[in-house]
Design a protein around this nucleic acid. Sequence first.
DNA 1: TTAAGTGCAAAATCTTTGCAAATGT
DNA 2: ACATTTGCAAAGATTTTGCACTTAA
Lengths: 144, 144
Amino acid sequence: MVHTHNNNFESLLEKHHLKKTGPRLKVLSMLSAKNVATSQPDLEGVMNDIDRVTLYRILSAFEEKGIIHKVFDLNGTANYAMCSPACDEDHHHDEHLHFNCTNCKNVYCLDELHLPEIKLPKGFKPDGFTLYASGLCPKCSKPV
Amino acid sequence: MVHTHNNNFESLLEKHHLKKTGPRLKVLSMLSAKNVATSQPDLEGVMNDIDRVTLYRILSAFEEKGIIHKVFDLNGTANYAMCSPACDEDHHHDEHLHFNCTNCKNVYCLDELHLPEIKLPKGFKPDGFTLYASGLCPKCSKPV
DNA sequence: TTAAGTGCAAAATCTTTGCAAATGT
DNA sequence: ACATTTGCAAAGATTTTGCACTTAA
């Protein structure tokens, strides 16, 4: 996966015709520092210098542009993660696989995995799949 | 409560040591009338004679007892559906398959389907899977 | 009778909107 | 200079809590 520096963040913003502001760069570096999706509350906690409303707006702008994507965890709270390069404004990944750790509560985006083919009952015309698995992540399943 | 035939709803409530009240029976009949999961707002709309708070409490009691289960649609809103008989207080289904129609917004619970086996990266110890598919449901995919 | 359930009011959250001041280009 | 973006205040929406009244058992 890409190792992103500030320069990459800036060009990412440029690419989407968004101004390179402090709050936006901070959100980008927070999100890409983690390999897990981050919940809105957690983000607020870390960015206590950024207004809550600004955060909402940044996240929804990023989502609209295909820079990040939103995933709801098993409690229905929104978590955000960087999109892989395959995502763009018009077409996000079709298949997402998310892992929700019941111990540390982290949400892992396992975008690179392929879902096996799933057959639905007659008449259902799927255009995308999202799989949630819950259980223990590698860190939490390690023997102590 | 009116004396009635021993219908399924009443024995269901009895079984879980819940009193057979009007609001509860109404929720049960609403939910089992539909073969799709119903959102909280939709439920409120139909049950405008029942207090909103009462509805919250009924739903969470039912969920706790394993009578219904909650499923978040792709917008993160809670939808509720009757549990299959395999659900109980301690152990809901491990595998749920939900279909979210992008046209009519209905959420179908396809509990009877089996997920193919999914292999996760090393270290992940899954204990349950939930699959969301989005697209067109049979009704909406029918040619007009 | 009495514990459980309901309804209303009110608090606590969460999310959106409007607008003036600040900032990037 | 100009359009965007931010921060604050305030409105809306959603969910929870407290308490008195009602009801099923």
